[in-house]
């Protein structure tokens, strides 16, 4: 059953969480009082996240889980609808998507470089990375829009077939997530413009980079799905 896609994701997530909790609770006798900093598990360490897990990072991780759930469920719906229906005519994926994919990869790489630059306090490289990353991303989104237009004018309309409808739905969902990312990206850019130091925007550039990698992976999966079915 196609719901398995979503279930596998949930199972992995829950297993990680459950395992983490288990490692912090096994053998713990919660009713025993203990001085803080006594060095035992019940003290400071019990389930406290490592220092590197800052609130924004944890926040991003949780949000990525939510977004993964959204995409996994849509993919589940895709597979289920395909299974249930007799009217499924696979879509000829426009070649343009390969170019778009390349754009997104480059965007992701550029943002990674921007993050690196921010860590090393290199302002010009940070600017360059951000601008190139954003530029490629915008190119990706425009490319997707162009692909839509190509399909539409080629008679492959949204309503004509569920495969088309899913193509539009999946790409739209993905693009909306990227647009949200671009909003955060433009805020970092604006702060830089206002004279913020690389250190000050490091956090948000880092979150952008991670988010872009995530959306790249999602796109990879969606693209593979579209190619294979």
């Amino acid at each position: 059953m196609s719901m398995t896609v979503s279930l596998v994701f949930l199972a992995v997530l829950m297993a990680v969480f459950g395992g983490w909790l288990f490692s912090h609770s096994v053998g713990v006798r919660p009713w025993e009082a203990q001085a803080a900093g006594s060095g035992q598990r019940q003290g400071l360490g019990g389930g406290q996240l490592p220092a590197a897990a800052t609130a924004p990072r944890v926040g991003l991780a949780v949000f990525l889980a939510v977004a993964t759930s959204l995409f996994a469920l849509t993919v589940s719906a895709y597979l289920m609808r395909q299974e249930m229906a007799h009217d499924w005519r696979p879509l000829a994926v426009p070649g343009l998507l390969w170019w778009n994919t390349a754009c997104l990869v480059l965007g992701s790489v550029a943002l990674q470089l921007a993050w690196q630059a921010a860590r090393r306090d290199q302002l010009p490289r940070l600017w360059r990375g951000l601008l190139v990353g954003g530029g490629f991303t915008i190119a990706f989104i425009l490319g997707q829009a162009l692909a839509w237009w190509q399909l539409q004018s080629g008679g492959i309309t949204l309503a004509a077939n569920p495969a088309n409808a899913f193509f539009f739905l999946l790409t739209a969902l993905h693009a909306v997530h990227l647009l949200g990312g671009l909003f955060a990206w433009s805020r970092s850019l604006f702060r830089l413009q206002q004279g913020a130091t690389p250190a000050a925007v490091r956090q948000s550039v880092e979150l952008c980079a991670l988010y872009w990698h995530f959306l790249l992976v999602v796109w990879g999966i969606l693209f593979a799905l579209l190619l294979m079915t």
């Binding site: 909790l21 912090h24 713990v28 203990q34 803080a36 003290g43 400071l44 389930g47 406290q48």
Partner: peptide
């Protein structure tokens, strides 16, 4: 992330 010192999961 924001539990105070000593507030373990359990």
């Amino acid at each position: 992330q924001a539990r105070t010192r000593g507030m373990t999961l359990m």
